[in-house]
Simulated assay, not measured.
Amino acid sequence: MTKPAVLITGASTGIGATYADRFARRGHDLVLVARDEARLQTLASQLTDQTGVAVDILPADLTRADQLAVVEARLRDDDHIGALVNNAGIGLAGGFADQAIDAIDRLIALNITAVTRLAAAAAPRLAARGEGAIINIGSVVGLAPEFGMTAYGATKAFVLFLSQGLALELGPKGVYVQAVLPAATQTELWDRAGVDEAAQPPMMQVGAMVDAALAGFDAREGVTIPPLHDGDLWDAFQAARRSMLPGFSAIVPAPRYVA
């Protein structure tokens, strides 16, 4: 049987380009999305030459509604696409009080709005078909306000929640949803965000991160955290969170809030 094609955003470099390489080597045709058309074309030619898969490029700035709409339409209409890798994202240097609101708005547009709209474009078709996958690239920062990346971390917390909610909704319909939460990974994101990479602690290599994420994908994990060596900690976190759920239905305030 023909393997489904994979649409990957932010595919011109870093994590997205590495996902493209790995899926091509697994025999999947690709649709690569990014702003840099020249880089996309170079990558597409390399992957076709090396693996023989068909690679389409779709240059787009996902912070622009008109260009985002083109990618949405491709996801809605192309029955050959069976998986979406929602990877495109940006960071932002500095503290929240020092960041320009226009920069925060662009961060939200790419890290939240585009991720949501592309998932929404793919989900109905995949659910109707009864199979498919959505991979959303989040970050451990979405679990750690202590890291001080407030706006960025908030967008990645959204990605995690969206992924977990979609997994509950779409999983019974045959669609697998995975959230991948990398820690610091050696990509161009740091330079583009205005962060001095040399001043940062050692980072995971992008190939190791993506290979770990794909191991989680093959195991059908709901949440994959490549740098977390003790997986029992995530299981305990989830168990503690779920243990609170019955209390959320109480109709009177907790005694500690009653004078």
Rank of each mutant, 00 (worst) to 15 (best):
L166A: 12
A100L: 15
E169V: 04
A97M: 04
A73Y: 01
P145R: 08
A259W: 00
K173P: 00
R125L: 08
I8L: 07
S243E: 13
M204D: 08
A250C: 03
T13C: 01
I251C: 10
A215R: 10
V258L: 15
A17L: 06
E72G: 10
T2A: 15
L189S: 04
A114V: 07
V31S: 03
V252E: 14
P201H: 04
F217R: 00
D191R: 12
Q41E: 14
Q200N: 09
L143E: 10
P201G: 08
A20I: 08
M1P: 13
A212T: 00
L43G: 08
S45P: 03
A88M: 13
M149R: 09
Q200M: 15
G194C: 11
T187I: 12
P227A: 11
I108G: 04
P226V: 07
K173Y: 01
D56Q: 15
L92V: 13
I90F: 00
R241P: 02
T51A: 01
V252N: 04
G10A: 09
S45C: 12
Q164W: 02
A199C: 02
L189E: 01
M203W: 03
L162W: 09
V258Y: 00
G27D: 03
D191A: 14
Q186D: 14
D218E: 13
A11L: 07
P59R: 06
P201F: 05
P246N: 06
R220W: 00
W190Y: 14
V195I: 15
A69W: 00
L166Y: 08
P182V: 08
T18D: 09
L47C: 06
E197V: 15
R22D: 00
V53G: 05
A167N: 09
T116S: 14
P226W: 09
P59M: 11
D49P: 02
N136W: 07
L84G: 05
A20H: 06
M204H: 04
F237P: 01
F147C: 02
R25A: 12
A240I: 04
L30Y: 06
G165Q: 12
A154R: 11
S139M: 13
Q46S: 14
P145N: 04
Q99M: 08
V71L: 10
A109L: 13
A122N: 12
Q41R: 15
E146N: 03
N87D: 11
E169T: 13
A127P: 01
F96Q: 03
T48G: 10
R39M: 05
D29H: 11
A179D: 08
S12H: 02
T48V: 07
G142A: 08
A44L: 12
Q186P: 00
A199R: 05
